Amino acid sequence: MKKLLITLAFGGLLFAMNHGQTNDPDLQLALNGKFKQAFSGFEKRCMNKNDGYACGMVGYMLDKGIGGIEKNHKEAIKYYKKGCELKDADSCTLLGYYEYKQGNTKKAKELLNKACKLGNKDACKYLNKF
C-alpha cells in the first residue's frame, strides 16, 4: 500500500519535473525551485477558487515539508480533505492511505472508491486487494 501511494503522489510531479513542462503556473514555479511562491499560489487557488488540485498540492507540500515549507501533517490532512471534497482524485487517494494507516479500513475503502470513480486507476487497483 505504502509503495503504491508514494508512486501515486510522486507520479504527476515527477513526470512534470522530468519533462520540465506544465501548463500550471504554480507547478512551474515549484519546478523552478520557487517553492514558497508555488505554495502561496496553490493556497490562493485552493481557498479563493476552490481548486481541488491546488488544495492537494498544498497538502502535499505541507505533508512533506517541501522547499522550506514547514512540515505540518495535521494541516496537510485538512487540505487533502478539502481537495477530496472538491473531487481531486489524488487527495482522496492520499486520505484513503492515511485512514488505512490509522486502521480505519471502512473509511479507506470509501475514499479509495471515490478516487477510483474520479479516475485514479491505482486507487481502483488497490480496491481489488481489500
Rank of each mutant, 00 (worst) to 15 (best):
I6R: 06
I6V: 14
I6L: 10
T7M: 11
T7W: 09
T7I: 13
T7L: 14
L8R: 09
L8S: 03
L8N: 03
A9D: 02
A9G: 14
A9R: 15
F10S: 10
F10D: 03
F10K: 08
G11C: 05
G11R: 12
G11K: 13
G12E: 13
G12D: 08
G12R: 14
G12Q: 11
G12C: 09
G12F: 05
L13Q: 00
L13F: 06
L13Y: 03
L13G: 00
L14R: 05
L14Q: 07
L14P: 01
F15I: 10
F15D: 05
F15V: 06
A16T: 11
A16S: 12
M17I: 07
M17Q: 07
N18P: 01
N18Y: 10
N18A: 11
H19G: 10
H19P: 02
G20I: 09
G20C: 12
G20V: 11
G20E: 09
G20N: 11
G20M: 13
Q21E: 11
Q21D: 06
Q21W: 10
Q21Y: 12
Q21G: 04
Q21I: 09
T22G: 06
T22V: 09
T22N: 05
T22L: 03
T22A: 05
T22C: 04
N23R: 15
N23D: 10
N23S: 06
N23G: 12
N23T: 14
N23V: 10
D24H: 04
P25H: 05
P25A: 03
P25I: 07
P25D: 07
P25R: 04
D26Q: 07
D26L: 03
L27W: 03
L27V: 07
L27T: 05
L27G: 01
L27P: 01
Q28K: 15
Q28H: 11
Q28W: 13
L29Y: 00
L29R: 01
L29N: 00
A30C: 07
L31E: 02
L31T: 05
L31R: 05
L31Y: 08
N32E: 06
N32I: 09
N32Q: 14
N32L: 11
N32D: 04
G33W: 09
G33V: 13
K34T: 04
K34E: 06
K34F: 04
K34S: 07
K34H: 15
F35H: 13
K36Y: 02
K36S: 09
K36A: 05
K36P: 01
K36Q: 13
Q37P: 01
Q37I: 02
Q37N: 08
Q37T: 04
Q37R: 03
Q37F: 02
A38L: 06
F39P: 00
F39L: 01
F39V: 00
F39H: 00
S40Q: 13
S40V: 10
S40Y: 10
S40A: 15
S40W: 04
S40T: 11
S40K: 12
G41V: 01
G41Q: 02
G41T: 03
G41K: 04
G41M: 03
F42K: 00
E43Q: 11
E43P: 06
K44L: 09
K44Q: 09
K44C: 02
K44D: 06
R45T: 01
R45M: 12
C46Y: 07
M47I: 12
M47K: 15
M47V: 14
N48V: 07
N48M: 12
K49S: 15
K49R: 15
N50E: 13
N50R: 15
D51N: 14
D51Q: 14
D51P: 07
D51F: 13
